[in-house]
Design a protein around this nucleic acid. Sequence first.
DNA 1: ATAATGTCTCTAGTAACTATAGCTTCAAGA
DNA 2: TCTTGAAGCTATAGTTACTAGAGACATTAT
Lengths: 136, 136
Amino acid sequence: MLSIGELSRRTGVKIPTIRYYEQMGLIDAPERSQGNQRRYTSEGVNRLSFIRHSRDLGFSIENIKGLLELSQHPEKPCHDAHSIAVQHLEDVQGRIAKLRRLERELKRISKCDAGNIADCAVIETLADHGLCETEH
Amino acid sequence: MLSIGELSRRTGVKIPTIRYYEQMGLIDAPERSQGNQRRYTSEGVNRLSFIRHSRDLGFSIENIKGLLELSQHPEKPCHDAHSIAVQHLEDVQGRIAKLRRLERELKRISKCDAGNIADCAVIETLADHGLCETEH
DNA sequence: ATAATGTCTCTAGTAACTATAGCTTCAAGA
DNA sequence: TCTTGAAGCTATAGTTACTAGAGACATTAT
């Protein structure tokens, strides 16, 4: 049986975050010690690792709830799990495209070596959208 | 003199967001009509465009406050504006790198065509971090 | 036994908005 | 001039995914 601190160390999820996940219904309320402290099993470690990993990949808590539910029913078709993943992939690709446009513009404006604000490309570019190289 | 709705249309910033920016001190409280409605000038359009553009580029409201303050003092050296932009550029590049690793993994796991959850790569991958191709 | 560390609950705060309710004002047509 | 419908007002609360703090209690090591 692991304390919450031990669980935190093993999964890399911070203690308040573990309690938060419990509150949100992502993980079951665990057994308690005589002194009312949470005590986890290795099952708890697995489930929390799953959550941690999914969060790292950017899935929302709602998505993770769905994925966890699916993983609980190995007999079901995995169509839903895929549609969550594919949808997320599209979202990620969109974000990458947006960030790369942004990167190009930031690179451009941060090259400025003017002595004062009056002719500083950073301020100028931000003030006048028309100067942008790309749409956003 | 523009109403808040007109300002919203011209800048692409939603009405509640404009009021929020006023509350946050990003824009000055404008004049009011006799009936207490906000009335903006073209100066207001410029300032809000600057903010909109900066937000699109991902600057935080705190950063924008700094940038706005700098833009108000054209005689100052623009070193600070650059350091904000450069720092932001680094952040953006970090996010891109992370998202691309994520994209690779999502592509991989969403290719799965298993019939049921038991051998579905999405669930399997999420459950076992060790299966990942990349670190995250 | 005692000290140090860990854990408990509860509340409130974070960023950057968004939504709702219930009211008032404005502009245009009859 | 009256009316009606769109637009605007304030204030409050909700969103996401946590994070921080206070003050009390539990566990562990010496």
